[in-house]
Design a protein around this nucleic acid. Structure first.
Lengths: 211, 211
DNA sequence: CGAGGCCTTGAACGTCGTCAAGTGGAGTGG
DNA sequence: CCACTCCACTTGACGACGTTCAAGGCCTCG
């Protein structure tokens, strides 16, 4: 049930009825909805330790797609196995439930981000979220972290155009909040970035960190 | 544990640590986040049969608020009671879990709505969602349904300004898609409205309908 | 060296927000 | 029964934030 996937590859597709869940071991993934006219909305980014389609355990048909961003290693676990596991260890069932609830909390934050912040704050907020989540699983390097997300995908995640994402990131850099390298970001001014994005990590519900 | 609440009254607030869940018996409610500068984003609307803060069972602190829209009758059920109930009837636990997963699915749809549709489609989509959900619990009247949601709240739900919501609803009426009365909507052209909002009810995951 | 991604840039246009004022109905009190 | 008030809805003008289109630059990889 182990697989290595190339970048930009769908793991599950909208309307599918999957019989297994996906656990990300290494790499990056994202969930998205494709709309008419080539438009696309990215719903979330996923990092190692996440189970992005855990909801398929109880929702038969997918209402969105899941794809890799970079080359990734994933474990595919049959629903039956998961269910048996939960029956054997009820505590784990609650952990999984909680995990999907955090998922929902992140979506709520995204609704807010896209609905009520302008470009500058939106991107700042997203960069904050990724930093905190990556740090929680030990994937940051001081103030720097890997960001293998092209601007086109940042655009689809924030509901903006690529062009505008580009210009806005230039602003963020110009204001000394971040620095970008190849496929990574350095946070130069955490407080500034936090304020710009009105970022409050409550919605991530970090405690001890499951998984 | 039964209570009647006046319109515009908070049931739980952001940062609270509730020890009970709320079941809506009658009326309308909504969840929202308040941002700096008086801005607000509405995250979802809730109708009789919904348990809008079921997530508090596993997420200690609220990351948003819940309030009534119209006068409402709600049941407040202690977490302990819910937990005992789930232990006694494991099937119900799954139903509840599933319910929160549908919640998340609706948030995903809202992210998409706010992120990638323009005003006309956004409002159309929202009107479609409310129609289908209300019909599922038998609260529609043919092609008409109660809509006790002022334009200011529609604006905060769609990430628009009141002014623009107003003008866009005029367009929807002018195009013969809907008619509005006092606090209700009549759908004049369902197919037209569906297309305008690119509405696909899959995300509601209606099956048999759990209470 | 050529090709394909991704990032970057400029200019023109459009959707939507802001500000500010005005209308109309429902409920209240004189 | 008639002000008066409050709240929701409506309107016009203007400007801003963000999009679209189109082109060019850079790096990587074959």
């Amino acid at each position: 049930t182990l697989r290595v996937l190339r970048p930009r590859q769908d793991i599950v597709r909208d309307q599918d009825r999957p019989s297994q869940c996906c656990l990300i071991l290494d790499g990056f993934a994202f969930r998205y909805k494709a709309l008419g006219d080539g438009k696309r909305q990215i719903l979330s980014f996923h990092i190692p330790g996440d189970m992005p389609d855990l909801q398929s355990l109880h929702l038969e048909v997918m209402d969105h797609s899941l794809a890799t961003l970079a080359t990734s290693k994933v474990a595919l676990i049959p629903h039956d196995t998961v269910r048996a596991f939960i029956r054997a260890h009820p505590r784990i069932g609650d952990v999984f439930w909680r995990d999907t609830l955090i998922d929902a909390a992140v979506f709520r934050e995204w609704v807010t981000n896209v609905g009520r912040r302008e470009a500058y704050g939106r991107i700042a907020h997203l960069l904050c979220e990724l930093f905190v989540r990556l740090r929680a699983v030990g994937l940051t390097n001081g103030d720097s972290y890997p960001l293998p997300i092209p601007q086109a995908e940042l655009a689809d995640a924030t509901g903006l155009s690529t062009v505008h994402v580009n210009r806005t990131m230039q602003e963020l850099r110009g204001d000394g909040l971040i620095k970008t390298n190849k496929a990574s970001v350095v946070i130069k001014d955490w407080d500034g970035l936090r304020e710009a994005g009105e970022f409050d990590p409550t919605f991530l519900h970090l405690r001890k960190q499951a998984a």
